[in-house]
Structures are given as structure tokens and as C-alpha cells.
């Protein structure tokens, strides 16, 4: 039996976990293609106008998988430990897809800690609904969780290692945006590629260890509400001493990001910040002007600093 995972939204974060979990349960895993124009256009076609671009793209990916697998995995993410919540878009994805597409078979689960639903029991439910035994599912979950933890920590250590060996002359630019924007082929990739073409070293705020001690994010503001925004702020705090500039990328019309990005730009004083908001009608020219001048600002600032020293 084939389980499809849309290559969008939180899959960019949890893919390792989910893929390993389903594989250990002896399912074939089908992942939708990387985002391309066709997926984007389908996503826009199937979505409500008011949705954010990232969730529109998600629908495009579901459409891409439709018919290529037996079940599509679309979990609901609502609330987590410590009163963390996810954006309502993540609560709604299952229902939106269920109502948008005909004959769509979905595997779902409900990550809603505040309603007493623990992560492990949700995974066990998935196994049960697909006819796998309790112990097999339990072992699959533990294995997947360990792999995921290792994957996160490895990525973090790699990035840290690179950072420590960096030449001081290089421009280190921190990308602050959700993994489903940063690593999306149409949204974040072109921006990252363009910055790299201009010689910048890219550091990702979404790469953080699986567990971080203390609430680092609260150094920026104590009143952050969304789990995934907190993680990005943690990233800023972890890397702030190594970086020369921050590029915030968000998608129109993301509610949490519009608040959090604005707040960050006000609070972060000594690091140049650039805010990019992506929508469906992007022209590359406007983006390039902003990125080029941003890199210029950083470069000139560094040169001047070197002279003053």
C-alpha cells in the first residue's frame, strides 16, 4: 500500500520523521514533486482566495498526489506542550483537503495537546487505522523519533561547524522564514540561490537542535504565541553573533509572520534586516533590486567598519 506525503507545509520540517514512520510500518511512501509552476497554479485554482500562498501550494501538492497513492497523510497540528499553538491553517488543512477534493482517502491524526491528545497516542492511532499492530507501530514511532532527533542535531552541528570556520570577510546572511518557505522550490529557493550567487553564506534560522535549553526566543519578546515563530526566534538568538544581516521571508497573507516579522525588525537593532513578502504575482526584478542593495549595504558597512578599526 502506498502512503502519499505532500511535499509542502510541515513536511519540510517533519519529512524524516514521517517517512521513517510509514516505512517501518511496511508502507511505500510517495512524495509529491518539488513545487513547480503547475503545482502552484493548481493550488491557486483549488484554494480559497484568502488563504496564504503556502497553504495554496499545499493543495497543489495534494492534487499532484491524487490518484498516485492509496492514502494521503494530512495531519492536523493544533497545540503542543507549554501552551504552544500552531497557525489555524495547520488545524484546517485536513478539513480543507477533505472538502476540496472528491474521493480523497486521507490518513490523519490530531496533534492537539491542550485537548489531552499526546503525540505518541496519535501515532499509535495512525497505525491502528491502517491495520498495524500496537507494538509494531510503537517501535516504528520510537525509531522514527530517534532518526528525526539525530537528523535535526546533525543539521545543526553541520551549520555550526561551517559557521565557526567562516572567514570574517564573508557575508553571513541569516534566512528567517518557515522551512516550508525557505526550502520551497518556488518561494525561498530562488532567493537563497540569488544570494549565494552574490557570494553570501546562507545560514538558516529554522535549523536548530531538537531541544534547546531555556526559552531563548523570549529574549526578543515574551509574548510570542505560535510554536513555529518561537522556533525561528530561537534560531535568531542562536546565530545572532555570527551574522551580518537577516532576510525575513514570508508569504502573503500570513498572519503570524506579519506580526512577528514586524516585531523582530523593531527589536533587532544592530543587524540590518530585509523583509520580503512573497505573493502569486512576483516579479523577479523587484526582488533582485532589494536583495542586491541589501548585500551592498552589508558589504559597504563591513568595509567601513574595517577601516575604522
Amino acid at each position: 500500500m502506498k502512503i502519499g506525503i505532500p511535499n509542502a507545509m510541515l513536511s519540510h520540517k517533519y519529512m524524516v520523521l514521517w517517512e521513517s514512520f510509514f516505512k517501518s510500518l511496511d508502507f511505500d511512501v510517495v512524495i509529491s514533486s518539488k513545487t513547480n509552476k503547475e503545482i502552484l497554479e493548481n493550488g491557486i485554482k483549488y484554494s480559497n482566495d484568502e488563504s496564504c500562498l503556502a497553504s495554496k501550494i499545499f493543495l497543489g501538492h495534494v492534487q499532484d498526489l491524487h490518484g498516485k497513492c492509496d492514502y494521503i497523510f494530512i495531519p492536523r497540528h493544533c497545540s503542543f506542550k507549554n501552551n504552544d499553538v500552531a497557525c489555524v491553517k495547520f488545524n484546517a488543512l485536513y478539513d480543507i483537503c477533505n472538502n476540496t477534493f472528491n474521493n480523497l482517502k486521507i490518513v490523519t491524526c490530531d496533534f492537539d495537546y491542550n485537548r489531552g491528545k499526546k503525540e505518541i497516542s496519535e501515532y499509535l492511532n495512525i497505525g491502528k487505522s491502517l491495520g498495524r499492530s500496537y507494538f509494531k507501530t510503537f517501535r516504528a514511532y520510537i525509531k522514527a523519533k530517534n532518526e528525526y532527533r539525530k537528523y535535526c542535531n546533525n543539521k545543526y552541528e553541520n551549520q555550526n561547524e561551517i559557521l565557526k570556520n567562516k572567514n570574517k570577510k564573508d557575508n553571513n546572511i541569516l534566512i528567517v522564514s518557515h522551512p516550508y518557505i525557505t526550502h520551497d522550490e518556488i518561494l525561498g529557493r530562488p532567493i537563497v540561490n540569488y544570494l549565494e550567487k552574490m557570494g553570501a553564506n546562507i545560514i538558516y534560522a529554522d535549523i536548530i537542535p531538537e531541544k534547546v535549553k531555556g526559552d531563548l526566543w523570549s529574549n526578543i519578546s515574551k509574548n510570542i504565541y505560535w510554536k513555529y515563530s518561537k522556533e525561528l526566534l530561537t534560531g535568531i538568538e542562536l546565530y545572532k553573533e555570527y551574522i551580518d544581516g537577516i532576510v525575513f521571508i514570508s508569504v502573503f497573507s500570513c498572519g503570524p509572520d506579519s506580526l512577528v516579522t514586524d516585531l523582530c525588525i523593531r527589536k533587532i537593532k544592530n543587524i540590518p534586516c530585509l523583509n520580503l513578502v512573497l505573493d502569486e504575482l512576483n516579479s523577479d526584478t523587484g526582488m533582485q533590486t532589494r536583495l542586491e542593495s541589501f548585500v551592498d549595504v552589508i558589504t559597504y558597512k563591513k568595509k567601513a567598519g574595517a577601516i575604522n578599526e
Partner: peptide, 11 residues
């Protein structure tokens, strides 16, 4: 004499 910050209108 160095550009330290700038802002541009949205699209």
C-alpha cells in the same frame, strides 16, 4: 558616508 539601512515600498 556608508549606507547602513534602507527601506523600500512593497510591490
Amino acid at each position: 558616508g556608508v549606507v547602513v539601512d534602507y527601506a523600500m515600498n512593497t510591490l
